[in-house]
Design a protein around this nucleic acid. Structure first.
Length: 256
DNA sequence: ATGGTCGCGGTGCGA
């Protein structure tokens, strides 16, 4: 099984890129974030035509939104947290594909350190950790992927000194992210790429991609036994170089 | 320290 995660920054603006990329990369499961459309405006037919007949779409107008697209059936689909209200920002969709519990997450951005939205981000990451504690054992086959909006380590940041205490790399954010990882997740990119300094996001400002000034904030994490079956994981920078790209690149993992 | 670019929707807000 090949799984990919990609923050597309509006599926309407990125449909051409998504179709082009999927046709070549051919993931079996595609987890999208920031689709920025309500469910009825998601391009369902276009993805079905590519073989993704099973779709768990959880979108809203203009902001946020996630979608998991799959070649094989998605069972037990759930949206957001159980205690979220129906008008909560749509950031999480999960489901079981081939017996694997796959969580597709778009963590809050946080806007500004110590703001209300920053605290919301920290709380959201804490709630996600709690969900795994309550619902799963590390013997289960679990994947958490998506845009978690935090770079965990110095090697995940272009200029760690410059990013110190900045949004996406502040200590409380990193603590929240690492606390979630300590549930038992394996960072599959790290499993296969050592200390490689590769990024998954580059700001639209000042040609950051051309200068490779980015962060690694998009991940595919899995439970330990599943990680043993993962033969490779990489970041595909190519679509980030296309015209009018998303600010994020897709991350891909392959399981035997 | 500042300011820079997108996407959405039709104005500023969010990232």
């Amino acid at each position: 099984m090949k799984i990919a995660t990609w923050n597309v920054n509006s599926i309407k603006s990125r449909l051409e890129h998504a179709v082009k990329w999927c046709s070549v990369a051919e993931p079996d499961v595609l987890c999208l974030q920031e689709i920025k459309v309500p469910d009825d405006q998601f391009p369902k037919r276009e993805f079905a035509a590519l073989g993704y007949e099973h779709q768990a779409i959880f979108g809203e107008t203009a902001y946020n939104g996630v979608a998991t697209l799959s070649r094989s059936p998605i069972e037990n689909v759930e949206m957001n947290f159980a205690d979220d209200s129906s008008d909560a920002q749509r950031r999480l969709v999960s489901g079981t594909i081939a017996g694997i519990h796959i969580f597709n997450a778009y963590a809050p951005h946080g806007t500004k350190l110590k703001s209300e939205k920053y605290q919301f981000k920290l709380d959201w990451l804490g709630r996600l950790r709690k969900l795994f504690d309550e619902r799963f054992s590390t013997d289960d086959d679990v994947i958490l992927c998506g845009d978690l909006n935090v770079a965990p380590h110095e090697m995940d940041v272009c200029k760690p000194q410059a990013w110190k205490d900045k949004l996406h790399f502040s200590k409380p954010e990193r603590d929240a992210l690492m606390d979630m990882k300590r549930w038992g997740f394996v960072d599959l990119f790290r499993q296969h790429n050592g200390d490689a300094k590769e990024f998954s996001w580059w700001s639209n400002f000042h040609n950051d991609f051309e200068k490779d000034r980015g962060l690694r904030i998009d991940f595919i994490w899995s439970s330990p036994s599943l990680a043993e079956d993962c033969s490779d994981c990489w970041i595909d920078r190519e679509p980030r170089s296309w015209e009018h790209p998303s600010d994020h690149a897709p991350v891909v993992a392959v399981f035997d």
